[in-house]
Simulated scan of single mutants.
Amino acid sequence: MKKSVLNDPRVMYHSDKFPVQKTQAEPALQSQMQPRPDCGEASYVGTGKLLNRKALVTGADSGIGRAAAIAFAREGCDVAIQFVPGEEADAKEVKGYIEDEGRQAFLLPCDLRDEGAASWIVHETVDAFGGLDLLVLNSAMQVAIETLADLPIQQVEDTFKVNVISMFESVQAAQKHLLPGSSIITTTSSQSFDPSPQLLDYAATKSAISNLTVNLAQYFADKGVRVNAVSPGPVWTPLQLNKGQLPGQLPNFGQGSLIGRAGQPAELAHMYVYLASDDASFVTGQIYGINGGTNINL
């Protein structure tokens, strides 16, 4: 029988249960995770799809944002990296990967809950790079709760500030800099379409992001700016170790997906590149699920 050249998606990445590990204090660091997420550091190979473009990626120190930032740099893009203060170690690693490609990297430590922070990162990126072509709004807050009674209203406010309100502010600040051909990419979630009770506030923000993405695509259409979203499912990122899962649930994280495992950030990088590039010139107002099989219905 001829040997297959195909790869079984069920075992291409980490497919076992995750080891028990301590919940990290905020902010959680990718460097302390076991196993470390695969963000394409050793595998992503660029082909110049984003040559000389200038990008701002929020939450780019780790996880999905990190994978997108590394991929963008290997496609020829300069990248500004927003991250929460305390995540400098992870952010400096990403900066190194970007500069290894001969591209500019710019670190932007700030908490998106702070007033004016979301517009500040846009202004700083434009000042550093002389423009802005790609805006990737990926930063997120996720804290699981046992019951509705356990959900502090302050947490609800903070989650909406980071996940939704900062998006409005960043887009408002960026719109005058986005020329025809620019692209805005948001990160929503399968929680937008299939919410979990332990993630009431997080799921609500992701639903808002899905709606906002489709709406912004209409707003920016006559300006030549495309707006799309990536919708991850269970992906192994530091978000899960910073109270993102209920106690005891982490070992089984992602095991219930149709593929039978959690995803890795590297598996999403190509979609961000596609949506940022001219390959997606006829694509706007779309939400792409990379989630192990969760159905998407807006």
Rank of each mutant, 00 (worst) to 15 (best):
V94F: 06
Q218H: 11
M33G: 01
F168V: 05
G263C: 10
D16A: 14
E41Q: 10
Q30F: 01
I290V: 12
T58K: 13
V126Q: 11
Y272K: 03
A67R: 05
N52Y: 11
M141V: 14
S43D: 13
G256R: 11
I98Q: 05
Q154W: 00
D100C: 04
G256E: 13
S15Y: 12
Y274E: 07
H177E: 11
G59P: 09
D100V: 00
P85D: 06
V79N: 08
V143Y: 14
S166D: 06
S277T: 05
S119F: 07
L200N: 05
Q142A: 15
R261S: 13
F18G: 04
F160S: 08
A68G: 04
H123Q: 15
G63N: 01
A89N: 11
T205K: 13
L179T: 05
V94P: 07
N295F: 15
L50N: 04
P251H: 04
S257A: 10
D90C: 06
Q142L: 15
D114W: 07
G285F: 06
L178G: 10
M167E: 08
D127L: 14
L268F: 04
Q286A: 10
H123A: 15
M271K: 09
A105L: 06
A221R: 08
A276I: 04
Y274S: 10
I70C: 07
C39L: 01
N52G: 06
V143G: 12
G63E: 02
Q264A: 11
T294I: 11
E157I: 12
V5D: 02
G40R: 03
G59M: 08
S183E: 03
R36A: 11
K161S: 14
